[in-house]
Design a protein around this nucleic acid. Structure first.
Length: 421
RNA sequence: GGGGAGGUGACGGAGCGGUUGAACGUGCUCGUCUCGAAAACGAGUAAGGCCUGAAACCUUCGAGAGUUCGAAUCUCUCCCUCCCCGCCA
């Protein structure tokens, strides 16, 4: 959510930010109109309430019955008028809220303008893709042959885009989760295990709702939704709270499964485990003071890159253009090279959300004792998303005989084994 | 799931229809005192809205709805916490 004061005072600035993203700046005018009506009604009804409060106080002290009855009758009428205006006010206020929730975040000035993800910028590429003296296989062939990924039975259990990990495959995933969490804890993050379902308000808090609800899995008969990412419960941890001076920054890491109903992806990426309805992820979330959020973003990216580096898998860093920011003010993606499918796979997305989520979720801090509360800045980034890391490991570490070398850093987490198959 | 007790500010805890945005205590902040600290004493200490700012004003005592001229206080619904019984990984 944006600051209504900013919209009132610098509408041109806000419209410009929206245009940079490719959004319709007319939304700003709708918000301003609603704000105007809202304030008019507020002035009117508040004046009436002030009168009622004052007169009611007098009535309490009045002794003389006739005069008292006259005042009460007068206030009864005024009360009816207030009820009327209150109803109007809350209707306008609800409309105003809705419009505010639909406004996107404004991109940081440093973010390159673009009209689609094709205009994201590759900032650098790390590591050298391995040269194979045989044709590298895609992970679905490797995984099936090794008996560590079972696609058919995943479909049998839950339908398409679900899979089953088995044996060393399960263990590899478990090793990755434990190792990644340990690395991030070593970087200063404290671990959280949140609920894997949340109330709708949490999704509004992070910005998934009301606009991006298409790919959520909702639970029938309850106000609960399966989380699409740990970002949702972890960012909302401190919702409606005022953090005491000295409590920032707060860095959390959380492992959770994630559910995404990827209906819009149609027939894309139907093979393998690149795009599935349920996947596991380790996520980092930061709460920081506003003036430090850009530096925190750089740290966040570096923390995620540490995972890529340690696994010794080639990857590249992309700066996302204004069209691909989602609700962030600035965002970077990490992509690992997968030689079997010959493509770069997004394994992490690191974003600074400014105070956009903090305003929606009411996450504030007190800069100093006695000072007025201010909104924190929130950030989050995957560290990392598992199926794609598994793809990258299988495809980069495959041998001619179809076996997989276990990356060095994972061996202590896998009972010391050096290879799968 | 059945029975009982509750939800008030950072915390404890009053209030149970009218000067209560909320007594009192604790905590916290600042000051006095001190070489310093403790103690003691003094002052301050909710959030949001409206507003150029301040004041005033409006809203908020789990949430929502209602009764009333007026509700933290009365009624209804929901949520949550605690205790007892049942069930259960």
């Amino acid at each position: 959510m944006l600051d209504i004061r900013l919209i009132r005072e610098q509408p041109a600035f806000v419209r410009n930010g929206m245009m940079r993203r490719g959004d319709d700046p007319a939304q700003v005018d709708a918000v301003l109109a609603a704000d105007e009506r809202r304030r008019e009604l507020l002035h009117e009804v508040e004046a009436l309430k002030a009168t009622r409060n004052a007169v009611s106080k007098e009535i309490g002290k009045m002794k003389e019955a006739t005069a008292r009855e006259a005042k009460i009758a007068e206030m009864r009428q005024l009360g009816d008028r207030i009820t009327e205006l209150d109803a109007q006010t809350s209707a306008v206020e609800a409309e105003f809220e809705q419009l505010m929730l639909l406004l996107p975040n404004l991109p940081d000035e440093r973010v390159p303008v673009g009209t689609s993800e094709a205009e994201n910028i590759v900032l650098r590429t790390e590591g050298t893709p391995r040269s194979f003296d045989f044709a590298p296989k895609p992970h679905w062939e490797l995984g099936e042959a090794l008996g560590i990924i079972d696609f058919e039975r995943g479909v049998k259990l839950a339908g398409s885009r679900f899979f089953v990990l088995k044996g060393a495959g399960s263990r590899l995933q478990r090793a990755l989760i434990n190792w990644m969490i340990d690395v991030h804890v070593g970087q200063g993050y404290s671990e959280i295990t949140p609920p894997f379902v949340v109330k709708e308000a949490m999704l509004v808090g992070t910005g998934n709702l009301p606009k991006f609800g298409d790919n959520l899995f909702r639970i029938e008969g309850a106000d609960l939704t399966l989380i699409p990412t740990a970002e949702v419960p972890v960012t909302n941890l401190y919702r409606e709270e005022i953090l005491e001076p000295g409590s920032l920054p707060i860095d959390h890491v959380a492992y959770t499964p994630c559910w995404r109903n990827e209906q819009m992806s149609g027939g894309r990426d139907v093979r393998g485990i690149k795009r599935v309805y349920q996947f596991d992820k380790v996520e980092m979330v930061k709460f920081v003071e506003p003036q430090t959020s850009y530096a925190a973003l750089m740290t966040l990216i570096d923390n995620a890159e540490d995972i890529c580096r340690a696994l010794q898998i080639p990857y590249r860093l992309l700066q996302l253009c204004t069209a691909d920011l989602g609700t962030a003010v600035m965002k970077y993606d990490l992509e690992m090279w997968a030689p079997g499918v010959a493509e770069w796979l997004e394994v992490s997305s690191c974003g600074n959300f400014g105070d956009y989520q903090a305003r929606r979720a009411g996450i504030r801090y007190r800069p100093a004792h006695g000072a007025r509360p201010e909104y924190v800045h929130t950030l989050n980034g995957s560290g990392l998303a598992l199926p794609r890391v598994i793809i990258a490991i299988l495809e980069n570490y495959q041998e001619a005989d179809g076996s997989i070398v276990v990356p060095e850093v994972l061996r202590p987490y896998m009972g010391g084994i050096k290879s799968i198959g």
